[in-house]
């Protein structure tokens, strides 16, 4: 059974013009699938539907075999902005999902310590988000996401607000952590390099209304895990994707 299954999802704000149309997608355990498309393609709308914040016009969202269409609280969601609460310490921020579901503050704090160490945030427990760098804040946000559900996460351009160097660092860190915690994830990005570097599969979201026009499987060569982005295979992927995005975009501007 797939972790997450999205069946024939369409969405429109006014009931007439569809923003996204007939989206079909499934995520298996431990898989990272990127959704790549230009800004304004309805990527975030799709995530709002999957997270249950918005109800789709048609179609359904199924997590672990359970229909959760239009019901929030089943899948963790992380946005481009870290959205850490500035008035809570890092440990209280990452413990928030547990507290929301009824765990006592003390027990919740205890429970997140292990994750804090694993995510390389040791020593920041008592600090406030304002005292941390962008990269560290993003790590904390990811840990909070993971603490909500260690099963599957929606990541909406989580690294796009970081500078290039920090971003590169975060990518390798992210891959390490992902393989350790075995999280399944859907990942939105408009950065082709990022998509190829991180994903197992890339879905191209194009057209108007947007739909998934291509799914490209990425095979990372075992010998080049760290410097994958410097291999000819990487460039080959990039070429394929750019061509596809370009051709489809000239046909009908997204």
């Amino acid at each position: 059974m797939s972790k997450l299954e999205i069946k024939n999802v369409s969405f429109s704000y006014d009931g007439k013009t569809d923003i996204i149309k007939d989206i079909n997608l499934s995520v298996e355990k431990g898989e990272l699938i990127s959704i790549l498309g230009k800004s304004g393609c309805g990527k975030t709308t799709l995530f709002n539907v999957i997270s249950g914040l918005k109800r789709p016009k048609t179609g359904s969202v199924i997590i672990d075999g359970e229909d959760v269409t239009g019901k929030p609280g089943h899948i963790s969601y992380m946005l481009q902005k870290d959205l850490l609460l500035p008035y809570r310490t890092i440990e209280d921020n990452v413990a928030l999902p547990l507290i929301l579901s009824g765990t006592k503050k003390k027990a919740a704090r205890q429970a997140v310590q292990d994750g804090i160490r694993r995510f390389g945030l040791d020593g920041t427990q008592k600090k406030y988000p304002g005292e941390l760098s962008g990269g560290m804040r993003q790590r904390a946000a990811l840990l909070r996401t993971y603490n909500f559900s260690g099963e599957i996460a929606l990541l909406d351009e989580p690294f796009s607000a970081l500078d290039t160097l920090t971003k590169g660092e975060m990518h390798s860190w992210f891959l390490d952590v992902m393989s350790e915690i075995k999280l399944s994830a859907l990942f939105i990005t408009h950065d082709i390099d990022e998509a190829i570097f991180l994903s197992d599969k890339i879905c191209l979201l194009t057209g108007k209304p947007s739909s998934i026009t291509d799914i490209i499987e990425i095979k990372r060569p075992e010998s080049h895990k760290k410097d994958f982005s410097l291999t000819p295979e990487f460039l080959e992927y990039k070429k394929t994707i750019t061509e596809k995005l370009f051709v489809e975009n000239t046909a009908d501007m997204c």
Partner: peptide, 25 residues
Amino acid sequence: DKDTISLMRSMGATKVQIFRYVKFP
């Protein structure tokens, strides 16, 4: 912040919890 409230909702927070953890502080 509207995004923060959306995030809280996506984590299944109730109205009272959103008030307590986001709006009031």
